[in-house]
Amino acid sequence: MIRDLTWLDFAYLVYAMRWTIALTALALVGGGLLGFVVAMLRVVPLAPVRWLAVGYIQALQGTPLLAQLFVFYFGFAIFGYRVQPWVAATAAFSIYASAFLAEIWRGCVQAIPRTQWEASAALGLSFGEQLRHIILPQAVRIAIPPTVGFLVQLVKNTSLAAVIGFIELTREAQITTAATFKPFAVYGIAAGLYFCICFPLSELSQRLERRLRVAR
């Protein structure tokens, strides 16, 4: 039975946005923590550790996010573990985000002039003290715009979680389309809602970038 597209459907779509936002937030926290560790491993003065971090980043950046999602959702089921869609989605997106954030942050750390390492080493600071007091405070400042930029990608990419049955904005749109058979209108609304999340973030990123240029 095909029914009309009503305001209630619109309300459901808006309501489903909360899972898009929640998944993005979880992935940002999980991916941020993991990504920070990987970024640090990427700059330690120990070559084998750096290679390990490079391997991790390459493996994740070189495989499709969709495949990573399937590994977590279907892959573990083979071994008899039933993974809830939201668990699989959170894990997959966290790991995906960690690889990209690690690479962004590694670049920010390496953008700090070598002379800052040298000057702090010459004062007797250890590697950890150099990072904490000299390098990271300067790197964080330049890391904010690209990190927010990646966040925009992350918001849009969470739509892939729809394929493993995680009911976020895109999945809700699929369900609504099935009931109303108005794909153009429904997906148009869904796209508009994504835009409502992403546009302010992009603006924020650009504002931060401008402020960065004048800030100390």
């Binding site: 002379t115 000057a119 600071l125 003290e129 007091h133 000299i134 300067q138 400042r141 100390r216």
Partner: peptide, 24 residues
């Protein structure tokens, strides 16, 4: 002391000086 000073740009003059004595 280096040719290009290499002060820590995110820290005040005071903190540039006190960092190593307090941390190290």
């Amino acid at each position: 002391v280096f040719q290009s000073y290499n002060l820590f740009p995110h820290l005040s003059v005071e903190r540039n000086i006190t960092l190593a004595p307090t941390v190290v």
